[in-house]
Design a protein around this nucleic acid. Structure first.
Lengths: 139, 139
DNA sequence: ATATATCCGACTGTTTTAGTAGGATATAAT
DNA sequence: ATTATATCCTACTAAAACAGTCGGATATAT
């Protein structure tokens, strides 16, 4: 039960972008350098963040990524959705899967509960929290 | 971010065992039939549960698995440990990995928090809850 | 024109996963 | 004792997922 590298790197990348000068933004190149992630791999990651509408830039020579809204208005859940279609800790919980084992499988509501706990946490934490390194598990 | 089939099946198997007659127990064969899991695959799963000390049986012709203590004294966390060495949503959180990116990675406390949220949930839910199909995510 | 930087799809080696196979061992029944 | 049953336990394999690279197209500033 691990998160994929893309998701992890994606989080680091958007924090880097959020910390950049709001006007100039930051280049892939510099995110790559600062975070120690190959520029080609980062390419895909940044692209996903852009497709999700979380960051913006101009194309061409004088680019530079910026977040599209305040860091406090971007949740980790939204960032996560840039890299995964949904949160579903087991396939049965996926939108497009139907569970046909209700009678014999007594674990579904446990998994549903776990899924919800994760979603709640993801909705609670914002990009602003990440930037500030706020401690979140003390609750 | 999915749980492995072994863990899922393992949970279903131990619920089946917990529901069995406390004296006679239940055979692999019957768990297999009831849960629709191949007997050979189940073999490994039941074995893991036994190694973890959660179930017991006698070997040989007249076997039958039983849980070793009350269902209310077995947490999902303990069951999970039968199939995974630890709960660590990213490698950095693993016992035997040291994170060397504190300076550049601003996401570690987020992941630590998530990990803790999951561990707390796993500690809260017992085998008894699973057996009763108790609804747990309403909190 | 040219240099820079993003865009975007295809590809590949590695690792993980799910599940099978086969035989060893222990016990109950005959 | 022998046989049937059931677990124990290791090894193996096909398929899927993953991490990361590569190449080239496109857009823009100078």
């Amino acid at each position: 039960m691990k998160f994929r590298t893309k998701t992890r790197y994606g989080m680091r990348a958007i924090v880097e972008i959020a910390k950049a000068d709001r006007k100039k933004g930051i280049l892939q190149k510099d995110i790559s350098k600062n975070q120690g992630i190959s520029i080609k791999y980062l390419d895909q990651i940044v692209h996903a963040l852009k497709e999700a509408g979380l960051i913006e830039n101009v194309k061409g020579k004088k680019s530079g990524y910026r977040i599209t809204r305040n860091a406090s208005d971007i949740t980790v859940h939204q960032i996560h959705l840039a890299f995964e279609p949904e949160i579903a800790v087991i396939d049965c919980l996926s939108k497009d899967v139907e569970c046909r084992l209700e009678d014999v499988c007594h674990t579904i509501s446990f998994w549903t509960g776990l899924n919800q706990v994760i979603i709640n946490y993801f909705n609670e934490v914002t990009l602003q929290d990440l930037m500030e390194g706020r401690n979140l598990h003390s609750q």
